[in-house]
Structures are given as structure tokens and as C-alpha cells.
């Protein structure tokens, strides 16, 4: 865990690299190329980069038309303006015809920081999960984000991927890490409880699990980068072993990872579930680290909420 890297940077690097090899890749942005890092692609492949201006709804439609003509459009803006503002365009122009569009939205979650609630998307997993056939991915670090960008470029069909603004610790080893759409990974084995985590809070959750271990609690930690289709098999297998499940996500506890896991367990293997995340409220302005503390998504916050749950 030597350096921190924002997953938006990982996206910018990887899409530029893929653009060298695959000439069908076209990148669109809505006046946020410097922030989403799609600008890296623009510098290298200006002829296949299009800035549509501040018009996200049109951007989704143009992407649909490009995909219908055999291109592989990667579309970037902030999560709020992709999943939120352009929801119906994504649903009707991309999801319904199942077109090969990759929506790579940065600035998800409260870790956007100072910009505040209008820009802190806490609903994107829920909104995108509701669209039939949509794959929803939320990488945790640089290694996972790069591997995921590569995987979705090869996958045929619509994908929503959330990327972060904040530089986060690199938790995975580039040499050994393997990404597969729809598969979770056991990061730590344990018998006492299962913690399923996605995205930014993975690093803090691993630290919280270390503290639990010091208290004599052996937590199994599962990384769930793909929120849809969710890896039900792995969830059920672990829940059968531990008998209680905690989910951790930088999202409203309604609609996202916690809901997806609770749905699986409710139908297949009912056990007590605790959903850690933003408790159905809007974000607020402040430095990202302070907000993660405020919303109890830092190591202390996650550890304390788990302790309360198992007490």
C-alpha cells in the first residue's frame, strides 16, 4: 500500500492504452474530460474523442447510435449526471436495446468531497441495477479498475462502472489479481461473520477486519466489485458458514450492494444482515476524509458499526 491512486486515473490510463489496440473504441465526455480523466484518451486519440458539451442526455443517445453502428463507445461524466440526469436515456436508448455502451462515471459517492450533495451520487448502483441486462461494476483500487476497464471493453452489452475522485490505497497485487465480471473474491477467510464490501471502503474494511481479529473475531471479507450480476453463490456459501452478513458501500443503504446481498440471502439463505453505508440521507460539503469519518465509512466507523451489530 505504497501510494494512493484514484480509480478515475486508472480508467484514463487503461482506456487510452486500449484505444491504441482497438480502433472501435470511441470516448465521449460532457465537458468534464479533465475531471473524469477521459482527457487522457483525448490527448492520444483526438479523432476518436468527442466532447458533447454539458448535455449528458444527448451523449447517451449518441453513444447508442455509435454502438448500433459497431463502435464501442465509452461515455464519461460524473455519476450524478450519468445515472441520475440521463437515467431515462440510459434505460430506453441503451438498456432496452441492450447496446454495447460502457458508461464509466467518475465522482461517485460522498468522497467527491467539497462540492457537496448535488455532486455526490449515492443512488447510482440502485438506479443502474434496475435496468434489465445492465452490468454494474464498482472497482476498489487502481489494479481492479484497470482490470475491469479491460474486461468491460471485451464484454458485449451495456455496462455501468463507477469511478472515484479520491486517491485511494492500492490493495490488490497487479501480478496476481484476476478480474471476472460477476465474480466476488474472498480476501480474508473467516468463520464468525461475513463482510461483503465494494469499491472505496475495501481498504478500510480490511483494516477493520484486522482489528476484529485482534478482538478474537474471525471475519470473512469478500470483495464484490460486480454489483450486478451479483455473485449469489459466493454470498450464500459464506453466509452458510458464518451465519451473519455485513455489507459495506459508499452508497445509500437502499438500492445498492446491501440491498442486492439482502435480496439474495432473503430468498436463498436468510441470516441477519447489517447494511453499512449512507443511511438514506444526502451528502454534505467537506474534505473527503472528514466525510468518510462523518458517515462512518472510515476504518473506525466500519469497525464500530460491526462491533455494535455482533454485540
Amino acid at each position: 500500500m505504497s501510494k494512493n491512486i484514484a480509480t478515475r486515473d486508472s480508467y484514463g490510463k487503461m482506456i487510452t492504452e486500449l484505444g491504441d489496440i482497438n480502433k472501435d473504441i470511441v470516448v465521449l465526455d460532457a465537458d468534464l474530460a479533465a475531471a473524469t480523466k477521459s482527457g487522457m484518451f483525448k490527448s492520444k486519440h483526438p479523432e476518436r474523442f468527442f466532447d458533447v458539451g454539458i448535455a449528458e442526455q444527448n451523449m447517451m443517445g449518441i453513444a447508442a447510435g455509435l454502438a448500433a453502428s459497431g463502435k464501442i463507445p465509452f461515455v464519461s461524466t460524473f455519476a450524478m449526471f450519468a445515472a441520475g440526469r440521463a437515467f431515462e436515456q440510459i434505460r430506453n436508448s441503451i438498456g432496452y436495446p441492450h447496446l454495447n455502451v460502457k458508461i464509466c462515471a467518475s465522482h461517485g459517492g460522498i468522497s467527491v468531497g467539497e462540492d457537496g450533495a448535488t455532486h455526490q451520487c449515492l443512488e447510482d448502483f440502485g438506479l443502474m441495477r434496475l435496468i434489465p441486462g445492465m452490468v454494474v461494476i464498482n472497482p476498489a483500487d487502481d489494479v481492479e479498475a484497470k482490470a475491469a476497464v479491460k474486461a468491460i471493453a471485451e464484454y458485449q452489452g451495456p455496462v455501468y462502472m463507477r469511478l472515484g475522485r479520491l486517491a485511494v490505497p492500492v490493495v490488490f497485487d497487479e501480478e496476481t489479481y484476476e478480474f471476472e465480471i460477476g465474480k466476488g473474491q474472498v480476501l480474508k477467510e473467516g468463520d464468525d461473520l461475513t463482510i461483503i464490501v465494494s469499491g472505496l471502503p475495501v481498504a478500510a474494511t480490511l483494516e477493520a477486519a484486522d482489528r476484529l481479529k485482534a478482538d478474537g473475531v474471525n471475519a470473512e471479507v469478500i470483495n464484490m466489485a460486480t454489483i450486478k450480476p451479483i455473485d449469489s453463490e459466493l454470498i450464500v456459501e459464506s453466509a452458510k458458514k458464518t451465519g451473519k452478513v455485513i455489507t459495506v458501500e459508499e452508497h445509500n443503504v437502499i438500492g445498492g450492494l446491501g440491498s442486492a446481498v439482502a435480496e439474495v440471502l432473503g430468498e436463498e439463505n436468510p441470516v441477519p444482515v447489517k447494511r453499512i453505508g449512507v443511511q438514506d440521507e444526502f451528502g454534505t460539503s467537506g474534505p473527503a476524509a472528514e466525510l468518510l469519518k462523518l458517515y462512518k465509512l472510515d476504518t473506525d466507523g466500519i469497525y464500530e458499526q460491526i462491533k455494535e451489530f455482533i454485540a
Partner: peptide, 13 residues
């Protein structure tokens, strides 16, 4: 309002 955007995308392709 959505078909026109897709038509623009097809023309761009």
C-alpha cells in the same frame, strides 16, 4: 427526443 441523438451517433460513426 432520443431518436435524434442516436441518429447523430449513427451519422458520426
Amino acid at each position: 427526443g432520443q431518436g435524434i441523438s442516436a441518429a447523430v451517433g449513427i451519422a458520426l460513426a
